[in-house]
Amino acid sequence: MLTIIQSPSKYIQGAGALEKVGKYALMLANSYLVVADSFVMNLTQATLEKSFQISSVQAYFEIFRGECCKKEINRLGKILQRHGCKGVVGVGGGKALDTAKAIAFYNKVPVIIVPTAASNDAPTSALSVIYTEDGAFEEYLMYPSNPDMVIMDSTIVANAPLRLLISGMGDALSTYFEARACYEARAVSMAGGQSTLAALNLARLCYETLLEEGLKAKAAVEAGVAIKAVDHIIEANTYLSGIGFESSGLAGAHAIHNGLTVLEECHSMLHGEKVAFGTLAQLVLENAKQEELETVLDFCVQIGLPVTLDQIGIQDNDDLKGKIMKVAKASCAKDDTIHNMPFEVTEDQVYAAIMAADRIGHKWLKNYNIVL
């Protein structure tokens, strides 16, 4: 089988990058539908309008209603068609960006992705995660190419809520472990082939960057200041994780995340928070070395990522076994990425891994005198 690596045509990161969107957009088209939720639109519209005007690019702004589902994709696509837009700009978080990619794909126009937070690795990828209108995972929508451009304004990203940056680190945390599993299994990645050495090592660099820079970046954002570690974590959360997962592959952590979406009590949790717990469960599932497991546990607790079920909203009660069996069953769906693990995985094994990861997490929290 062929090895494949893929990435956006351009990745642009730095302070004030939002002011340059019009300049780069003009390279692809002269009219765009700009999609963002109401909060992000209020934050960015004036700057974007000025940037588009300077570059003589026409822009139509439309509010994204919050869920990356087929109904919302179709609604926004009709607006793009009505205005005759030749491209899409998605601004904001993961679901808004995934929706922008889907609109562009169905309408055969270029797409520019402008994240306002480093909360996940969706921006660079050639896929969208499609949910039902109620917020449950439905499918991955795969595209023939990555976004034409990804533009990260590091000033805006660093001033986003700290929880979003931490969630991005949770999403990025899984990248290396899932890439390693896929490499060992010779699994087919999201890019359509086996992992290259380059992709695997970008995934490893992502993990190493999190361990080296994560706590410093968190402290800086808490203090309201910008330091180099913040830039490094933005790149790790977005570019390194994005290329690493897409061109190496997803495995247990994201499948378990997808399983968790069937529980309503998890819907308030961010993607990366659920993926972080899924990473712990994957490490238990594959019987990872104790030292490695402890390193991940330490990182999660210090950064503020969940290591127990109750930290992601699942209470220990009489219904717990039934709920986690539902999660395990959904995680092992026929086409989900749990089957990229380098061994056969059953629902019972996933259930056991989740329950054991939860108990390990509780025991580890006691090392920090944290009692839930």
Rank of each mutant, 00 (worst) to 15 (best):
K86L: 15
G93R: 03
L165T: 08
N107H: 15
Y60C: 10
A191H: 06
E344I: 14
L97V: 08
G278H: 04
V296I: 12
I324E: 00
Y239L: 15
T337H: 07
A158W: 04
A126C: 05
D37P: 09
G242P: 02
I156S: 05
I354G: 02
M325C: 06
V88R: 00
I256D: 00
A59W: 08
A276H: 04
S241R: 05
E178A: 09
Q45G: 00
P8K: 08
V188L: 14
Y60L: 09
V89Y: 03
G313V: 04
M27W: 08
R180A: 15
E265S: 04
I73W: 06
S189P: 09
S145D: 13
E344H: 14
A328C: 09
T175L: 07
N42A: 13
Q58M: 13
C300A: 13
L210P: 05
A191S: 15
K363V: 12
L285A: 10
S56H: 14
S241V: 06
D298G: 11
A100P: 00
H257W: 07
S189E: 02
V188R: 10
K108Q: 14
A223L: 12
L211N: 10
G77V: 04
V230A: 03
P306N: 08
A158T: 10
V35W: 03
L18T: 07
L205H: 10
Q81R: 15
S241M: 04
T124L: 08
M152V: 15
A160K: 02
E212P: 04
T308S: 12
S167K: 04
M1F: 08
G168R: 01
K108T: 13
N237C: 13
L164S: 05
A100H: 03
A29F: 07
L240E: 00
M190C: 12
Y368E: 00
Y207H: 11
A203S: 07
D121Y: 01
G322F: 01
T209S: 15
L211M: 14
A333K: 03
L141K: 09
I73R: 02
K101H: 06
A96T: 07
K274F: 06
D171M: 07
